[in-house]
């Protein structure tokens, strides 16, 4: 999965129209970035890359790019 594919997958997971998200999008500006949205991201990371991301580290992510970097650095099971 490359970065563009991740952005598209995150759009789908958060039920956002295609083409809306960019790496620079601020997460707090998204209505669907709530507690369920965080779970969707965790599930995406686990399913697509077999990566488990620390919930506390998700909490400090500001942008979509931050989520992508976190996934890249995550621990594979």
């Amino acid at each position: 999965m490359d970065r563009n594919q991740f952005v598209a997958a995150l759009e789908s997971a958060l039920q956002i129209d295609k083409g809306i998200l960019t790496p620079e999008t601020v997460l707090d500006s998204l209505e669907s970035w709530d507690s369920l949205g965080v779970l969707e991201f965790q599930a995406l990371a686990d399913e697509e890359l077999n990566v488990q991301v620390e919930p506390t580290e998700i909490g400090v992510c500001r942008t979509v790019e931050d989520l992508w970097k976190l996934m890249q650095a995550g621990e594979k099971s």
């Binding site: 507690s35 369920l36 965080v38 779970l39 965790q42 488990q52 991301v53 620390e54 919930p55 099971s77």
Partner: peptide, 16 residues
């Protein structure tokens, strides 16, 4: 309930 932490527990611990 801390949903993300519980989900993380489920992925890491319960599935193993």
């Amino acid at each position: 309930m801390n949903g993300p932490e519980v989900f993380d527990f489920t992925i890491r611990t319960v599935s193993r």
